[in-house]
Amino acid sequence: MTFWKLFARNRGAVVGLAILILITFMAATAGIFFPEDPFSLAGQSMSPPGENGFLLGSDSLGRDVAAGIAHGAKTSLLIGLLATLVAVCVGIVMGALAGYYGGIIDDLLMRVTEMFQTIPSFIFAILLVAIMKPSIESIVIAIAVVSWPAVARLVRGEFLSLRNREFVQACHTLGMSDIRIMMGEILPNCLSPVIVIGSLMVATAILIESGLAFLGLGDPNIMSWGFQIGAGRTLLRSAWWVCTFPGIAILLTVLAINLVGEGINDALNPRLRERS
């Protein structure tokens, strides 16, 4: 209840949530409103928006842009969520080990994290997908590989500040195992910043995914917004709508997720908001 009240104080976050619900609805109902394969020929090619029964026009192969956007929403949300989930899990494990044990383990893990943060992440993602061959799995893995270091650093910091607190010492005297203390006692205490960073990471993941698909590294069997724009760029002169509408879809989705992320931040860390 209080969470929702705090969240609703941020008007931008409420607008973001509304947009996000709409996009999720669009993704969920894509198969009902557009039962045909989005790659299939749906009618007259190069139709401008509103003509020949195409709401948002069609491309040079007669594919329905609107159908592509609806089906692409599924891809974007799915890859964004999966990649973030994997990255957050890896980041939590690395950060927890480094922060809890300290010493050599910390040094070693932080050097690895630093190296991953130094590498230009988008080129690294391109390379990983190119080497593993484009598919949903390889895209998820690539995005997760370039995103986990931020989570690891955050979790490590939280663990460092919590590991010597009294409640942790109490757990030690009770004879709890390290794993139970880490996952059952310390982790729940640092979940709120992880949730915030995770929600913002979904937005970044969607942007990376669209960039990869634009460069031709999307899963060839699945419609995505980046693919639509990449395929439509040669038609820029004659059919502006093919590129324009999927881009607006990406923009709205990422914007909505960022707004919701900020709202969650305000709700979970109310003191932070009052300070600024």
Binding site: L236, C243, G247, L251
Partner: peptide
């Protein structure tokens, strides 16, 4: 601008 994909801005 935070939420806009670069390639799309370029094309527009």
């Amino acid at each position: 601008t935070y939420a806009t994909p670069l390639f799309w801005v370029g094309l527009m």
